[in-house]
């Protein structure tokens, strides 16, 4: 028994030591920035600045997508304190809807995307009403398993309807395949527009949350269920709003990345892993944190894959996993999250 105790104690001490590393937010952020900066300087000197800048651009293009997906995850986490494992598949389904609108009905792509966002918002509102609301919002495991069920249903249904062929998703932006040069590095117009679109979406969501009545209700509910009930706020409808908003943002992210990957029922799997990493790094309940961390993860993915030989593109998901585990061990509330994290 004493061996058990000493092992237990040493495990505890180890965690305490790890925890102390990440206790101060400023120090954690500072350490992260320092590591990234040092790495940037080294590789920029070694391999040339143009290549470095090119990789920054590539990384940003991925990073903004992860930022949008992470934002969707955080929206649902804030509302229901549940990680929506079906978020990626909802985005995939929404992207397919946009594809059908554009391809089969001949609607111009930007309009098709907006319509698909509306459709997925409606769909998510329905899902919330039928599948999520019957459960006590405090019953996290049941809700999590429901999201797993949704994952399966949406993924397989897309397979049944659209099969597993790769489809090209049209770019919604003008200037197809045209790019311009910044200090010798190529930047596609479409990528620039993607960044701006995601930024606009982030701005819109934060305005929606800070300036509107439903946004106030959303913040109130995510702060305290009980107090919100006492204020006469309809909890169910507010959570429904969160689901709808998250689904719309997810669909936007899906259509933005489908342009560069290719569209098939599993295409969001990879994006979801990076978005998990981003949401964890940012702190699951911080919208701003999710956006910043999404961009960081995009950069880390491109840089580590590009400059560190054995990682390449194959091991990039492993890097995401390492980031998730590392953050949770050292600073469980992420870089920007509030302290109350361990809920289940």
């Amino acid at each position: 028994m004493s061996t058990t105790q000493s092992v237990n104690e040493s495990i505890g001490k180890g965690y305490a030591a790890l925890g102390r590393l990440g206790q101060k937010r400023i120090i954690s952020i500072g350490a992260l920035v320092a590591v990234l900066a040092a790495f940037s300087v080294i590789v920029a000197v070694q391999h040339g600045f143009t290549l470095f800048l090119q990789r920054i651009f590539d990384g940003l293009s991925n990073g903004f997508i992860y930022a949008a997906m992470a934002m969707a995850l955080v929206l649902i986490y804030k509302a229901t304190t549940v990680v929506n494992f079906a978020q990626g598949e909802m985005a995939m389904f929404g992207t397919f809807i946009a594809y059908v609108f554009g391809h089969s009905l001949g609607i111009p792509t930007p309009l098709a995307i907006i319509l698909a966002m509306l459709a997925s918002a409606l769909g998510a509102a329905g899902i919330e009403r039928v599948l999520i609301r019957p459960f006590d919002p405090r019953n996290h495991l049941a809700v999590t398993i429901v999201t797993l069920g949704l994952f399966l249903i949406l993924n397989s249904l897309a397979g049944v309807i659209w099969a597993y062929d790769n489809r090209a998703f049209p770019s919604p932006f003008p200037g197809r395949n045209r790019s311009f040069s910044v200090f010798g590095a190529n930047l596609e117009w479409a990528n620039l527009f993607t960044w701006l679109t995601v930024l606009a979406a982030v701005l819109l969501v934060s305005l929606l949350l800070s300036r509107t009545k439903i946004g106030l209700a959303f913040r109130s509910v995510s702060n305290s269920l009980e107090s919100s009930e006492l204020l006469g706020i309809h909890i169910g409808r507010t959570l429904q709003f969160g689901w709808a908003l998250a689904a719309a943002v997810g669909t936007l992210a899906g259509t933005m990345i489908a342009r560069t990957t290719l569209l098939e029922p599993n295409f969001m799997g990879r994006v979801l892993i990076y978005s998990f990493a981003a949401a964890t790094l940012g702190g699951l309940d911080s919208l701003g944190g999710a956006v910043v961390a999404g961009i960081v993860i995009g950069l880390v993915q491109t840089m580590s894959g590009g400059y560190i030989g054995f990682i390449g593109s194959d091991l990039a998901p492993t890097v995401a996993l390492v980031v998730i585990v590392g953050v949770l061990l050292v600073r469980p509330s992420g870089l920007f999250g509030s302290k109350r994290v361990e809920r289940v």
Binding site: L216, S220, S224, E226, S227, S228, L230, L231
Partner: peptide, 26 residues
Amino acid sequence: VAHVPQGRGTLTDLSVEDNLLAGAYT
């Protein structure tokens, strides 16, 4: 019916003004 619970139940992450606005939600 307005209930001021024990322990106050203020919305700690919201600003003072937003708390008041949330009070007027209905």
